[in-house]
Nucleic acid binder design. Structure first.
Length: 100
DNA sequence: AACCTGACTTCGG
DNA sequence: TCCGAAGCCAGGT
């Protein structure tokens, strides 16, 4: 299994209504420092691999996409799964973080 | 092989 | 708790 394949399979395991951080995924794939590599993968494979990319957010518990660049879409996707956002667009990690 | 990019993370002030 | 700087990874050019 290559690092990239690990990332793909891991993201596919994230259950509905839960979210994971880039760093968390990288760590599960065996590379605690590979958060940025995860980003690259989402860019290259989110379309063809049918990944639940919307369940991946940053460590602060918020969506990293900019409004008009996919932010709204991701937020709607998550809310439709039951994930709630506060006034600052952050989610309660203690409650929604995916714990494998 | 060097350099750049990207939806990050961590640490110090 | 918030902001900026520095560090890190994989793939493409």
């Amino acid at each position: 299994m290559t690092f990239s394949e690990q990332i793909i399979s891991i993201i596919k395991r994230i259950p509905r209504g839960k979210v994971a951080t880039y760093g968390q995924i990288a760590a599960l794939a065996g590379n605690p420092r590979g958060a940025r590599a995860v980003i690259w993968l989402l860019h290259s494979s989110s379309g063809k691999e049918k990944l639940p990319w919307h369940r991946v957010i940053n460590g602060k518990g918020q969506i990293s996409l900019k409004p008009g660049q996919g932010y709204e879409e991701q937020r709607v996707m998550l809310e439709s799964e039951g994930v709630e956002f506060d006034l600052y667009g952050r989610v309660d990690m203690e409650r929604y973080r995916w714990k494998p």
